[in-house]
């Protein structure tokens, strides 16, 4: 099956002074148009690596990514990215931050149209009254709203969210999750979100892709969620299968943990044996 977005045997290898380390290997994933997929896994498992490769900000070692039938080559405004830290230019106003991208994508539109577009998305994220405030004077939550508005205002083919709510307090996080879903009801943009929050993945996405622990991380399991859209938090939480899915996901993560602990223990055991063998040799030699 060919998807709107295809990740084909995507892999990333970093060269370290101890030799090459494979972070992600053979990562296969197809997304339908308008689908919301969450990448869930432990910290450091390579979720963000996959996302930054799709964004074009991180060179791809093996495999490839195609969007709408075209292979990506470097970063571009067809993929809106929301980073964990808001990444606004602190010296610019909220509007100017959004305009930076809008000016780039809609070069032929009149200035007024561009301002209207940027203000429209800032209004959607609830910042209609703070258009001309400097980014450095906005709270963390408000800055992240501007980040979301900036990504949507590009009218991207794809939205890439790298733990977008990770730095926010839980109340602000829930508020922004709902705002994001609301905008997605209007603009159906294909989305990949990286998170390590099981509840966030369950509430936001159509499918949750569980990643195995790195190195050599890959797709471990995929859960298709039955919750209806538009999502209402209370309904999702009340859904009869919610806790079943939640249990399965946490079980998967714990298994990964066990596997990692086991692998670590084995590695330690191995190292110990080697040490002993070496000591033996030394003792024999003496």
């Amino acid at each position: 099956m060919r998807g709107y977005v295809e990740l084909f045997r995507l892999g990333k290898t970093y060269d370290t002074h101890k030799g090459p380390v494979v972070i992600v290997e053979d990562f296969d994933l197809n997304l339908e148009r308008g689908e919301y997929v969450a990448l869930l896994g432990h910290s450091g498992c390579g979720k963000s690596t996959v996302l930054t490769m799709v964004a074009g900000l991180n060179p791809i070692t093996t495999g490839g990514v195609a969007i709408d039938g075209r292979e990506i080559d470097g970063p571009g405004p067809d993929r809106g990215v929301v980073f964990q830290s808001p990444c606004l230019m602190p010296w610019m106003t909220a509007l100017d931050n959004v305009m930076l991208g809008v000016n780039q994508v809609y070069r032929n539109a009149s200035k007024n149209d561009r301002i209207d577009l940027a203000s429209y998305y800032l209004n959607l994220v609830g910042l209609g009254g703070s258009l001309h405030k400097r980014a450095k004077d906005l709270s963390q939550g408000m800055q992240q709203r501007v980040g979301i508005a900036r990504a949507f205002a590009l009218k991207p083919k794809m939205l890439l969210l790298d733990e977008p709510f990770g730095m926010l307090d839980s109340l602000t996080r829930m508020e922004l999750q709902e705002i994001l879903l609301e905008i997605l009801v209007r603009d159906k943009v294909t989305t990949v979100m990286v998170t390590h929050d099981v509840d966030e993945a369950l509430f936001m996405s159509d499918r949750v892709v569980m990643m195995t622990n790195g190195p050599r991380a890959r797709v471990g399991a995929i859960f298709s969620l039955p919750f209806e859209r538009p999502r209402v938090r209370a309904d999702v939480l009340d859904h009869p299968e919610y806790y079943e899915y939640r249990r399965k996901m946490i079980q998967f993560l714990e298994e990964q943990d066990h596997r990692k602990l086991k692998a670590d223990a084995e590695a330690r055991e191995q190292a110990k044996k080697q040490d002993e063998a070496e000591e033996q040799q030394v003792a024999e030699a003496v």
Partner: peptide, 25 residues
């Protein structure tokens, strides 16, 4: 690096990158 990432995603030209991002930062 985050600012540079933003400039990369938006494909800012050399001059825009210089005057809108690098110099103010």
């Amino acid at each position: 690096k985050d600012f540079i990432n933003v400039a990369d995603v938006l494909r800012l030209s050399w001059a825009q990158r210089l005057f809108k991002i690098i110099l103010p930062a």
